[in-house]
Design a protein around this nucleic acid. Sequence first.
DNA 1: ATTGTTAGTTCCCAATTAGAACCATATCTG
DNA 2: CAGATATGGTTCTAATTGGGAACTAACAAT
Lengths: 111, 111
Amino acid sequence: MKWDDLSENYCPVARTLSIVGDRWTLLIIRDCFFGLSKFSEFQNSLGITRHLLSERLKRLVEAEILEKRQYQDRPPRDEYVLTARGRDLADTLHALKKWGRTHMPVRRSAG
Amino acid sequence: MKWDDLSENYCPVARTLSIVGDRWTLLIIRDCFFGLSKFSEFQNSLGITRHLLSERLKRLVEAEILEKRQYQDRPPRDEYVLTARGRDLADTLHALKKWGRTHMPVRRSAG
DNA sequence: ATTGTTAGTTCCCAATTAGAACCATATCTG
DNA sequence: CAGATATGGTTCTAATTGGGAACTAACAAT
């Protein structure tokens, strides 16, 4: 199956998943909602390899979910920030959060 | 990264994604909401290989999102139906659907 | 000039996925 | 009963994707 084909699927769930349906993407977007924006911040937060992070960020920029912005000149530094489209994924993240809290509570050791 | 480790993550989004965050799982669950329940129904709907479908269904049963039920004796036939836990993923699917409709509309040919 | 930092890219090996073939159980046809 | 068909898988091999380390580039600090 080619996942890009899903972007033309009749089902809107499938179309959305063609962009955010892989293992890392929604975690990156979650981090954006937490205010992270720099390459190294994502990397430290997620433990993702630079290789994959680079690729995923590129896809998210192409999908106009993130916007790449140079925030300083010397040295040139970019940050990745949510677009309006990206911010609209808040509902999805809230739903995932709610399900996790309800159905996968963390048992924490006493104390 | 071992995705099973995510199930212990402090973040409920990450915990949820440890189960449903791969490429096929949410599409299978979507099909369950549409009323599909048999192995071959999922296979025809998704174009997934039997191998992967088998593996994903097993994981979903282990995660108690689907329940495997024998619905006839001779020949023995099973169906996979959503549990209460599984039905609670409705919000997530609705959020994905809404985003897809809004941000990835299908351009259909005229007529 | 050397070291450090950020943001990547390249390379190679491991793990996952795809696709086809195979197997088990049971029904149907004759 | 033999042979064909259907469902629900498992097994095998090849291709794709992911992981991890090393390398590169631009610049700052010392």
